[in-house]
Amino acid sequence: MLKNLCQKMFGRSLWVYHANSGGCNGCDIEVLNALTPYYDVERFGIKLVGSPRHADVMLCQGPAMRSTAQALKRAYDAMPAPKLVFAIGSCACGGGLWFDSYSVIGPVEKIIPVSYYIPGCPPRPEAIIYGVAVALGLVDKKTAPVAFKELELPIPQYHPGDLRGEGELVVYEKAEKV
């Protein structure tokens, strides 16, 4: 339904505004990268604009910080409806490494409603373009929701006591069992 709505509401060029609310810059430069010759999102009509008042979409990078929460909220309010918000990168999606630090509030969804999530640290430019294209209905989503089970650690945890052998030939005893 959201897809149809998007196609109806955002049928033409999509103007995006990027707001870094306190990230490390990594996602920023990947968003910039998506504008440049190798990835070139302008061919899809996507254009970066300087003011939230011109924008259809807000790209959020970085966690919601105590010091920028107000500014982020104001920028969101300044966007004309209908509007979409993308959370780009691990920090914006879930708060990142510092989700519970004293100066961080957490993921941006605690401040403004988020429509789509693009995880990664940082996400590749391809991932960002793919995320936007899925949202616009340009491509189909290739993933399905999966419930994850906690698995056994797939990497053998080496312990010197389990190493058997002499000289150059050393065998890790438990390796085959993993």
Binding site: G23, M65, S67, G96, L97, W98, S101, Y102, S103, V104
Partner: peptide, 25 residues
């Protein structure tokens, strides 16, 4: 405005070999 409390995190919840990944970010 990007003060994320990194130094505090390192001193209280991480260990020596976690911090390089934190430092990178």
């Amino acid at each position: 405005m990007v003060h994320r409390g990194i130094e505090k995190l390192a001193e209280s919840v991480m260990n020596y070999n976690d911090i390089p990944m934190l430092a990178e970010r």
